[in-house]
């Protein structure tokens, strides 16, 4: 037997072997769960992943379609003054509704779960985490201070947004959002930063050991609302 051939065959085989091992390790790591022998669990997990992928693909398609629509609009309204005005009105309306990405002066507030237990939290561990009510109160204070646009972990708050408790995470716009919460707000940053005043809600949270941070920024970017706003029951008079 030719020695070269033997070496080649074994080499190819070991290439397949290491390839398989690498792919397998990557697959197991990416699913980050213990091995389950039940095929129903596996297929359910697979289905969830597939739906997620499909959702992402559709979302991308939607964004592309929106871009096309925008271009189409621009090209048709380009040489008509009246239509350009209407177009600007639509843009203004979308900005108010939260359907466009906006940027401006503002603050970034970060709320982190407590890492150092206090005397009270030993008895009641729920005091260590950031609750939906805490987020809601902070949002309320920011709105009171004149915030014009707010997002929590990239979930834009719009008129239909709800902040509800959902187990160990909270739900905003129907999407699960977990700690740490990064709350971005656009408005007069000095006013918004007054959130950290003594007796304000952040000081209350600090007493519970919850990590709070507030940063003033000249350039806060808030993403647009990812869902769609459909009014079914409201009718204009």
């Amino acid at each position: 037997m030719d020695k070269k051939k033997v070496a080649l065959a074994l080499g190819i085989m070991s290439a397949i072997l290491t390839y398989g091992i690498c792919v397998q390790i990557k697959t197991i790591n990416s699913t980050n769960s213990s091995y389950s022998t039940s095929s129903t669990v596996n297929s359910l997990r697979d289905e969830v992943l597939r739906y997620k992928e499909r959702y992402d693909n559709k979302y991308e398609e939607l964004e592309k379609a929106e871009e096309e629509l925008e271009k189409e609009r621009e090209s048709t309204t380009g040489n008509n003054d009246e239509l350009t005005k209407l177009e600007e009105q639509i843009k203004e309306g979308n900005k108010l509704l939260g359907l466009t990405e906006v940027t401006g002066e503002g603050v970034i507030v970060t709320l982190k779960d407590s890492t150092s237990p206090t005397l009270n939290s030993v008895i009641d561990t729920s005091q260590l985490v950031v609750h939906d009510m805490d987020v809601l109160s902070v949002i309320n204070e920011l709105k009171n201070a004149g915030a014009e646009a707010i997002s929590i972990n990239d979930q834009r708050l719009v008129s239909t947004s709800a902040i509800v408790c959902d187990g160990n995470v909270i739900q905003i716009n129907g999407q699960k959002v977990g700690a740490p919460f990064e709350i971005k707000a656009i408005g007069l940053s000095e006013q918004l930063a007054a959130l950290s005043r003594p007796g304000g809600y952040l000081s209350v949270l600090q007493e519970y050991g919850i990590g709070t941070e507030i940063v003033k920024s000249k350039n806060v970017t808030i993403p647009k609302y990812a869902g769609s706003i459909n009014y079914k029951y409201v009718k204009s008079k």
């Binding site: 080499g11 070991s14 290439a15 290491t18 792919v23 697959t27």
Partner: peptide, 24 residues
């Protein structure tokens, strides 16, 4: 041959896409 093959396989494998969990 085995060492070279292993290296080649590892290089391809690291850059290969992840397969579906069912087939793992």
């Amino acid at each position: 041959g085995i060492i070279l093959g292993s290296l080649l396989g590892a290089i391809i494998g690291v850059n290969a896409p992840v397969i579906s969990y069912t087939y793992s």
